[in-house]
């Protein structure tokens, strides 16, 4: 999909082409919403909101960055707004914990692994909002520090600092639990 061509077509009035962008990015947006928001957010509803806001924001897209960066910036803003509304972060429980893609482990190991991941998710919720955002983006789609800085609208130095502190604090929380 030639993203620039699709966007220009949408801005020219061919609204139906927006569906192509939604199809392309909805899984990644849902994943990011989940990693950032836990169970505090309704993932399908959040994802929908992200794309509706993206539609309104498309005239502001200047093609100077990747469309994916633009979309993930909107995703981060939408989730953070929702988390502020809730005022607390609710991690997923162990029953509806995040799926871990790992076919080679046997069943027992898989269950143990699932529990560890649910714990990790819970610990993520205890991080400061900015630290969690930076760390989630760092572990998402192989984002570079520059990509993260663009999404978070801050300097690369700040991103490095946030990730360093997030990793340190996350380890502390995990060890404490």
């Amino acid at each position: 999909m030639d993203e620039e061509e699709v966007i220009r077509d949408i801005l020219a009035g061919n609204v139906n082409r927006f569906a192509e962008i939604v199809k392309q990015y909805q899984d990644n947006v849902a994943n990011l919403c989940f990693k950032m928001g836990g169970s505090s957010v309704d993932i399908p509803e959040m994802s929908q909101q992200v794309f509706v806001e993206l539609y309104s924001a498309l005239p502001r897209f200047k093609f100077q960055s990747k469309l994916s960066t633009f979309i993930y910036r909107i995703t981060v803003n939408v989730v953070c707004k929702e988390l502020k509304r809730h005022k607390r972060w609710m991690p997923s429980s162990e029953e509806d914990g995040p799926e871990v893609v790992s076919d080679e482990r046997n069943a027992e190991q898989s269950i143990v692994h699932q529990e560890k991941v649910a714990q990790l998710h819970k610990a993520l919720g205890k991080l400061h909002n900015e630290q969690r955002t930076a760390l989630v983006l760092y572990t998402f789609n192989d984002f570079s520090y520059n990509d993260i800085a663009e999404v978070m609208q801050c300097s690369v130095a700040k991103v490095e600092s946030l990730i360093f502190r997030a990793r340190k604090n996350l380890k502390k929380i995990m060890v404490g639990e």
Binding site: A30, K35, P98, E99, V101, K116, L120, V136
Partner: peptide
Amino acid sequence: ELKEMHYQG
């Protein structure tokens, strides 16, 4: 582990 976390739905 964080990288391997995915939304189930």
